[in-house]
């Protein structure tokens, strides 16, 4: 029985794993480009949680620095990704990833 003022470290990691799996599920199952993109962000968030948890575990600040970099890169990625989505929508009038397949044939 865990005490009330402490949380087992593994719970944080399991939460991170659950969120990551949900991100993977969204990435695989959804057909809307924007939702797929958001699932990627969810996966990044899940990884960030384990970074911060490990930073606490090892009493080192480096994990948080990594989280910081992930956030910055995610911001850059969102800007470029959304610009690409806007361009795709302008050219094809659709947001479904199944219909954006001209590289296939």
């Amino acid at each position: 029985m865990p005490q009330l003022n402490a949380v087992p470290m593994s719970w944080y990691l399991i939460l991170s794993a659950i969120l990551f799996t949900l991100g993977v599920a969204g990435f695989l199952f959804r057909r809307n480009i924007i939702t797929v993109f958001m699932s990627i962000e969810l996966m990044l968030n899940a990884v960030n949680l384990s970074f911060v948890a490990f930073s606490h575990q090892l009493r080192q600040v480096d994990g948080q620095i990594f989280t910081f970099f992930v956030m910055v890169v995610a911001a850059a990625e969102a800007a470029v990704g959304l610009a690409i989505i806007l361009t795709v929508f302008k050219n094809r009038q659709t947001l479904s990833i199944d219909e954006v397949s001209s590289l296939k044939n």
Binding site: Q3, A6, P8, M9, S10, I14, F20, T21, A25, Q57
Partner: peptide, 28 residues
């Protein structure tokens, strides 16, 4: 899809739990 993802999650959780005793607690 769903069964495979559940297996994936279960595997991750199992590995975490395996390491758990060495990791200790988080106190605010």
């Amino acid at each position: 899809g769903v069964p495979l993802l559940t297996v994936f999650l279960g595997l991750l959780a199992y590995l975490m739990q395996l390491m758990a005793p060495s990791m200790g607690m988080v106190t605010f």
